[in-house]
Computed example of a mutant assay.
Amino acid sequence: MAELPDDPNSAPLPPRRRHGRGEIGERAHATADELKAQLEATRAQLEATNERIEAKAGRNLLAATGIGLVLGALLLLSLMVVKELFLVFAGALVAFTSFELASALRFAGRNVPRLPTVVVAVATVPAAFYWGADGKWFVFLGGVAIVVLWRLAEALIPSRRTSAKDLLKDIGASTLVQVYIPFLAGFAVLLTAQDGGEWWTLAFIIAVVAADVGAYASGLTFGRHKMAPNISPAKTWEGFAGAVVATQIAGILLMVLMLGKPWWLGVIFGLALVFTATIGDLVESLIKRDLGIKDISTWLPGHGGFLDRLDSMLPSAAAAYVLFYLFA
Rank of each mutant, 00 (worst) to 15 (best):
T117R: 00
V119W: 02
L71V: 11
L69I: 10
A48H: 11
S159D: 10
L77G: 15
T124Y: 09
F99T: 07
V120Q: 03
I67V: 15
G91C: 01
L101T: 05
A30P: 06
L141G: 04
V148A: 06
S78F: 14
T97F: 04
V139H: 02
T117D: 04
R21W: 06
V125K: 03
S103G: 09
W131Q: 06
P113A: 02
E47S: 13
L85G: 09
R110H: 04
S163W: 03
A108N: 06
S103W: 08
A73S: 13
V119F: 08
G22P: 08
G25W: 09
V120C: 03
K56H: 02
I146K: 02
F96D: 06
L156V: 02
W131G: 04
L149D: 00
G109D: 00
V122P: 01
G25F: 07
G66N: 03
A153Y: 03
A28Q: 12
L105Q: 13
G143A: 08
V82S: 11
L74T: 11
L85P: 06
A57N: 14
A44L: 04
P116S: 00
A155N: 11
G72Q: 10
A127F: 15
V139S: 00
S98G: 12
H29F: 15
L93Y: 10
A57Y: 10
A48K: 13
P126N: 00
E100Y: 09
F138D: 02
F99R: 08
T162L: 12
E40S: 14
F86G: 11
V81F: 01
L61C: 05
T65Q: 03
A44R: 07
A133T: 05
A145W: 03
G68Q: 12
V147T: 06
K36E: 07
V147Q: 04
E23V: 13
E34A: 01
G72S: 12
T42K: 14
A55K: 15
A64M: 09
L61G: 06
L87M: 10
G109C: 02
F86M: 15
L79S: 11
N60S: 15
R151G: 01
G135L: 07
E34C: 00
H19M: 13
A95Y: 00
T162E: 14
S163A: 11
A90C: 11
L149C: 01
L71K: 03
V88L: 15
L71Q: 12
S78P: 10
N111R: 09
L149A: 00
S98R: 10
K56M: 02
G68I: 12
F140S: 10
E100T: 05
